[in-house]
Amino acid sequence: MDLEKPLIEIRNLRKEYIMGEEVVVALKRINFSINRGELCCIFGASGSGKSTLLNQLAGMEKPSKGGVKIGGVPISHLNEDQLAEFRQKYIGFVFQSYNLLPMLTATENVALPLMFRGVPEGKRNAMAQSMLQKVGLGHRLHHYPGQMSGGQQQRVGIARAFVTKPAVVFADEPTGNLDTKTTKEVMTMIKNFAGTFKQTIILVTHDPEMTVYADRIVKLVDGEIVSNETKKQTD
């Protein structure tokens, strides 16, 4: 991956959906870039197009026009096998609904991305448990998701997203199901991990309070960017 240029480049991106005889335009000529190490907040109300944009950035959907490059790789033009390999190497995800497998322990959930990379069981479990220690769950290594609170499950999700040290982590409304105190803890954790490894975070949210954590705030209204601001962070 070419990390000298902006890590993520979105050019002339448009997404249309056919609904019967009607064409619904979800994204209209989106253009912006995200630098390596930035925490970029894609902010907007329900229906603004932010989830559609996230799907485009992560290669979950193909654009109607334009495209997305990550590290110079045109992910909009990769086939499914190429996308799966690319995500495995460079992408992590944190979800609002945690997306943990209920039949697996915390350690096993966090170790999953490492298993897909072919890391031997002993090594991947050790790496997973080390990450769980870092998110404050050293006492929950062998607990199942159903035995943990929402905040603890999200910490497992964060450990899983960061265990492979991916170049980019997508966080889709990661604090939507959490209380205020846990939200602050989770966001501080995400920001600290990203800062340590110079990772890029794409945070998608409708909550204006989340923008305080961002280096770049991209605001969407009706599928269009109405502002794209960067701000200097203070500790």
Rank of each mutant, 00 (worst) to 15 (best):
G195H: 10
G195D: 13
G195Q: 14
G195I: 08
G195V: 05
T196C: 08
T196F: 03
T196A: 14
F197N: 14
F197T: 05
F197G: 05
F197E: 15
F197S: 11
Q199A: 03
T200P: 09
T200H: 12
T200L: 14
T200V: 14
T200Y: 14
T200S: 11
T200M: 14
T200E: 11
I201A: 06
I201E: 00
I201S: 04
I201H: 03
I202P: 06
I202A: 02
I202D: 00
I202K: 02
I202R: 02
L203I: 02
L203P: 01
L203K: 04
L203Q: 02
V204G: 05
V204T: 09
V204C: 10
V204Y: 08
V204A: 06
V204K: 00
V204R: 01
T205P: 13
T205L: 02
T205I: 03
T205N: 07
T205M: 05
H206C: 09
H206E: 09
H206S: 09
H206Y: 06
H206K: 07
H206M: 08
D207C: 10
D207S: 13
D207K: 10
D207Q: 12
D207N: 15
D207H: 12
P208Q: 10
P208L: 10
P208Y: 09
E209R: 15
E209M: 13
E209A: 13
M210N: 15
T211G: 03
T211D: 03
T211R: 06
T211A: 12
T211L: 14
T211F: 04
T211H: 04
V212E: 11
V212I: 08
V212D: 11
V212P: 00
V212R: 13
Y213F: 14
Y213V: 06
Y213N: 00
A214K: 08
A214Q: 02
A214T: 09
A214F: 04
D215L: 02
D215S: 07
D215P: 08
D215Y: 04
R216I: 02
R216V: 01
R216F: 04
I217L: 12
I217N: 03
I217M: 12
I217Y: 03
I217F: 05
V218A: 03
V218Q: 00
V218N: 01
V218Y: 01
V218I: 14
K219W: 01
K219S: 13
L220V: 02
V221D: 09
V221E: 13
V221G: 00
V221I: 09
V221Q: 12
D222N: 13
D222I: 00
G223D: 07
G223E: 08
G223K: 05
G223W: 08
E224R: 15
E224G: 08
E224A: 10
E224N: 10
I225F: 09
I225S: 00
V226D: 07
V226N: 11
S227C: 10
S227K: 11
S227E: 15
S227A: 12
S227H: 04
S227I: 01
N228A: 05
N228T: 06
N228I: 08
N228R: 07
N228C: 14
